[in-house]
Amino acid sequence: MSLANKKARLKWACRRGMLELDVLFMPFVDEAYDQLSAQEQIIFERLLTCEDPELFAWFMGHESCEDPELNSMVQLILNRVKV
């Protein structure tokens, strides 16, 4: 799959049912995804397979993700937003 096709697929997967998640994921794909390691890209793609209520709870700090890899990706995305 070409890089352009992969990014288009990722952007589509970033379109969620909650605006709060869209505003986190869309800029992250545009601005930071290419700088992730191959392993981090896989983790980000796995994060996008999670359900919206779960993601919302993790990103809003209502719950902590029990998967250490996914939790580290959540923290990475949140840290980019705070900068």
Score class of each variant (00 low, 15 high):
residue 27 P to L: 11
residue 25 F to S: 05
residue 75 Q to G: 01
residue 61 G to V: 10
residue 15 R to P: 01
residue 34 D to W: 00
residue 8 A to S: 03
residue 76 L to G: 00
residue 61 G to E: 09
residue 60 M to A: 09
residue 34 D to E: 12
residue 65 C to A: 12
residue 56 F to V: 09
residue 57 A to C: 04
residue 79 N to Q: 15
residue 30 D to K: 15
residue 48 L to C: 05
residue 81 V to C: 09
residue 51 E to G: 08
residue 46 R to A: 12
residue 67 D to A: 12
residue 29 V to Y: 12
residue 58 W to F: 13
residue 19 L to S: 01
residue 77 I to N: 00
residue 10 L to P: 03
residue 74 V to L: 01
residue 62 H to S: 11
residue 12 W to H: 06
residue 63 E to Y: 03
residue 56 F to E: 04
residue 45 E to W: 04
residue 62 H to T: 06
residue 46 R to Y: 00
residue 43 I to N: 02
residue 47 L to S: 05
residue 74 V to R: 07
residue 48 L to V: 03
residue 40 E to D: 13
residue 10 L to N: 05
residue 58 W to K: 06
residue 82 K to G: 06
residue 44 F to K: 07
residue 64 S to I: 08
residue 45 E to T: 11
residue 68 P to F: 02
residue 43 I to D: 11
residue 34 D to M: 07
residue 67 D to T: 02
residue 2 S to A: 11
residue 37 S to N: 07
residue 8 A to E: 10
residue 70 L to I: 07
residue 63 E to V: 05
residue 39 Q to F: 08
residue 13 A to S: 09
residue 50 C to A: 15
residue 66 E to K: 13
residue 14 C to T: 05
residue 44 F to E: 04
residue 71 N to G: 04
residue 59 F to P: 06
residue 56 F to L: 12
residue 46 R to V: 04
residue 46 R to H: 12
residue 75 Q to V: 14
residue 41 Q to C: 04
residue 66 E to T: 15
residue 68 P to A: 08
residue 81 V to A: 03
residue 43 I to V: 15
residue 62 H to N: 12
residue 27 P to S: 10
residue 29 V to S: 06
residue 19 L to E: 13
residue 37 S to D: 08
residue 21 L to E: 10
residue 83 V to L: 14
residue 67 D to N: 14
residue 28 F to G: 03
residue 9 R to T: 10
residue 49 T to I: 07
residue 83 V to A: 14
residue 12 W to Q: 12
residue 8 A to L: 07
residue 72 S to E: 13
residue 18 M to K: 06
residue 75 Q to T: 13
residue 29 V to I: 15
residue 13 A to N: 10
residue 65 C to Y: 04
residue 6 K to H: 11
residue 17 G to A: 01
residue 25 F to N: 05
residue 67 D to R: 09
residue 1 M to P: 08
residue 6 K to G: 00
residue 49 T to M: 01
residue 65 C to K: 07
residue 71 N to K: 11
residue 68 P to L: 07
residue 44 F to Y: 13
residue 82 K to Q: 11
residue 12 W to M: 07
residue 8 A to I: 00
residue 58 W to E: 10
residue 69 E to Y: 07
residue 1 M to Y: 04
residue 29 V to A: 04
residue 25 F to Q: 11
residue 54 E to S: 14
residue 58 W to L: 04
residue 80 R to A: 03
residue 67 D to M: 01
residue 31 E to F: 12
residue 40 E to P: 00
residue 59 F to D: 05
residue 41 Q to E: 09
residue 25 F to M: 11
residue 13 A to I: 01
residue 34 D to C: 09
residue 5 N to P: 02
residue 10 L to I: 06
residue 18 M to A: 08
residue 49 T to P: 01
residue 76 L to A: 10
residue 50 C to K: 14
residue 80 R to C: 06
residue 69 E to S: 13
residue 40 E to K: 08
residue 18 M to D: 10
residue 21 L to A: 09
residue 25 F to Y: 11
residue 71 N to V: 01
residue 52 D to E: 11
